[in-house]
Design a protein around this nucleic acid. Structure first.
Lengths: 143, 143
DNA sequence: ATGCAATTGCAAATTGTTTGCAATTGAAGG
DNA sequence: CCTTCAATTGCAAACAATTTGCAATTGCAT
């Protein structure tokens, strides 16, 4: 139960602080990410990047994604039956509802579910490192 | 949370009813599945199968898995960072807690969480077709 | 038994992602 | 600014998981 402003995350600073160089390909990819309202996959990011600089390679997209994931700047989601999709890590934690017809991703959050997960893990003798909760659904036909 | 007896499912009958032939490779794979207490991946099933009949091919394992999945006899789980793993569909619905150190899979079930998922989807205008809830954790060190 | 479509094994194709390598380039220091 | 050099890039090839084409084999309904 919360709103989620998306304060275009300052990737460049984050990268600098992690000791990495700001290159042209990276700058372009970062721009694409901060503008993305959806959850694009590597190929889609690549397509958008090529439109800005024809020289960019898919490998660089993948490498940059891994890098950003490594410093915690983005999250990678391996939804069912498709390539990994990415989203800026800015904002609160949330889970995903995937529209199985369109591929659209809707974010949601439930403190109650998180609590229950903790309880369950604890009861089984585990500490949760992370979790994955994805609902795959179809838009309800309102008639 | 609950325990789960595993009443060796009658795959052969299920296959017959689906109009499929009972071949030697299939019989072997089915036997492996009904004996499996774990959640083996295709390669592991293949290894176990080869031990019974050296002639079996990995493609056949994959094809048979897809078939069984199709008739709802098994479930496929694509846990993070590894190949798909399979389990007999017999027994109640449950979710999974994956031990990130050992790969062990622990099954659990929470009606409350299922309810909350329904509520959430409904509130967003969706019907849930299926869902995926996986907890990735580490055994708590008891001191 | 017989016949034929279903199934198999094998190799090659696909998909998503990673990697080796030689060429390029950011950025720190003079 | 100019040099220097490791970090980064593009490209092609390598990879891992899974699927597929095809010719040979085999269930199983007659």
């Amino acid at each position: 139960m919360n709103e989620m402003a998306n304060p275009a995350p300052d990737y460049e600073t984050a990268l600098r602080e992690a000791g990495m160089r700001i290159t042209r390909p990276r700058r372009i990819i970062l721009a694409i990410l901060s503008e993305a309202g959806d959850h694009p996959d590597a190929m889609e990011i690549f397509r958008r990047a090529v439109e800005i600089d024809r020289g960019i390679s898919l490998s660089t997209v993948y490498r940059t994604m891994k890098l950003l994931e490594g410093i915690g700047a983005i999250h990678r989601h391996a939804f069912e039956g498709g390539p990994s999709r990415f989203e800026p890590a800015a904002g609160d934690h949330h889970d995903h509802l995937i529209d199985i017809d369109t591929g659209d991703v809707i974010e949601f959050q439930s403190d109650r579910i998180e609590e229950l997960q903790q309880e369950i893990a604890r009861a089984l003798g585990y500490d949760i490192v992370h979790h994955r909760l994805e609902l795959y659904g179809r838009r309800r036909r309102r008639k």
